[in-house]
Design a protein around this nucleic acid. Sequence first.
DNA 1: GTGAAAGCGCTAACAA
DNA 2: TTGTTAGCGCTTTCAC
Lengths: 340, 340
Amino acid sequence: MSNAYNRPDQLSPELRKRVLDTARRLGYPGPDPVARSLRTRKAGAVGLLLTENLSYAFRDPAAIQFLEGLALACEDAGHGLLLIPASPEREDVASVHRAGVDGFVVYSVPDDDPHLAAVLERPVPVVICDQPRIDQLDWVGPDDEGAVRVLAEHLIGLGHRRIGVSCMRLARGRNDGVASVHRQANASFHVQRSRLTALAAAFSEAGVDWAQVPVVERFDHSTESGASAAAQLLEIDPEITAIICTSDILALGALEEARRRGVRVPDDLTITGFDGIDDAERVGLTTVRQPVLEKGRAAGRLLLDTSEPGRPRDVLLETQLMTGTTAAPPRSAEERWFGP
Amino acid sequence: MSNAYNRPDQLSPELRKRVLDTARRLGYPGPDPVARSLRTRKAGAVGLLLTENLSYAFRDPAAIQFLEGLALACEDAGHGLLLIPASPEREDVASVHRAGVDGFVVYSVPDDDPHLAAVLERPVPVVICDQPRIDQLDWVGPDDEGAVRVLAEHLIGLGHRRIGVSCMRLARGRNDGVASVHRQANASFHVQRSRLTALAAAFSEAGVDWAQVPVVERFDHSTESGASAAAQLLEIDPEITAIICTSDILALGALEEARRRGVRVPDDLTITGFDGIDDAERVGLTTVRQPVLEKGRAAGRLLLDTSEPGRPRDVLLETQLMTGTTAAPPRSAEERWFGP
DNA sequence: GTGAAAGCGCTAACAA
DNA sequence: TTGTTAGCGCTTTCAC
């Protein structure tokens, strides 16, 4: 009987048909997938853990592209993709415990995320995307430090010394405002930490006192946040010549704010992003492009690749500086006040 | 022991802690979710069946919004969302059989989809979104016929009589070209069928011979398809004054094609869409808006709503005619050839 | 508060 | 080729 369903080649077609017909007539709904999973120790699904509300994943263009890549890899392997409900608000970890999956992909969560801890307790393979970095675990992501350094040197080359930084949340607790150097260094989001560290290093080398550079943090990742962060930066120091944003979304918000204020980009103000989403390209944002879809696909492949040629494995993705039209040499103070 | 994990209130905290500590020390990874599912007959997850490749779901704005709504509902109920790999190419239904879920949401699949048949065999609740309509099954969707009729009457009111139609795939088999009246009536995608039927009815009442109206079908749902469909329509009958598209994506493609040809919209040609995605609103497309996010949320709620006040239930969503800037009265032939 | 035992539905191994 | 059986790991029930 089991054979009739699972190994059509092990018995004659006619017998198979007879068995199946009889089964259906008796109201047998087919093998129970859960019981089968228990027996075979395979769920045929991959779990995805995000640090945000599930619905957020469908609002952030970078997250969507990541999902697409991951879905592609799962589909190739005939696996399902289980989105695990793990809002940052509720500490409830049960959803991780309940997930019937063969492994987890963890996408960009903070070091101290309780859901991550729950995932790590499960006896299944785990692949981390972006953050955090954990020993002995497969990892996929871009070289954030290197990419940011290239961007920073581009801006330094243009002549920028007085800058402001707009960044995404640095820890699980909400803090919409200035992030002290201490908070920057202790950020529990590894990616944000490296980007800020790389910026600090590059600009320090160029003679900038990093402690004087305003870094403004926003909890929600949205263009509104980007706009208000830009506004705050311009208030703190109206003399800054560039706003460096750690994501394109924040940068797009900054562009909006600049337009609103009549500040010309890049003439009066340089604005840069990070990620390389479609909208960024459309408006010609100067940014760093990372292959987000590839990231998702690589994560899926890594997890589902059964031939294990020595774990842990790292996949470092190529990034590319996109010199758009939102970065230019700063104008001198006189130029800014009295025109060119 | 089971109690320690599942019913913290049934035993003293200290005992609970001791049990859990000992368990961890012995290397016990926590209760196996699959075995638990087998026993409790609950998977804590909802399956989603689409008719497209999984990755497609992350490219179509309407699908993304639907997913967001569905994810929202799942999250509220603490359920996971399992995306089931069911490409239209492979007839392989095993992924449906393997899915450990408490129910399925079926999103816009054709009447004769084999994966749908597999879903219906599973002894779990099913909610259908958009299509097909199946007796005794919960359903969520807009009033396609009504909405299209309002749109058609709008165009008829403007004076359009010589029109062309650009529509999405009508059956599982690829057919990029003209769709005969017969093919229209036999479309296995219920939604496309109703929209075409409603158009035919409205325009027939206005004195148009529907058999003479060119209806062009495209298998792939993309702006490129929309553009080529528009091109084909204009080739078949250069005198048409309006192109009605059964989706915004197709309409956006048609707009591109018009721009490429120097055909002015709406002066020389009226173009309409369906769905009301963000991009459509941005460019001012005349279209029908349906609450896509709400559709996803309603589907999830319907499936997860345990209090069953009499199934099957239908949720009919409100639609709204968006009179944008891409529809206007047709110009007479002379005007079109010799200018206003 | 604790322990023992049945059984969820399946698959794989083995026996006939 | 077909039939039988053990046991996957859990929860629930019931006896202690």
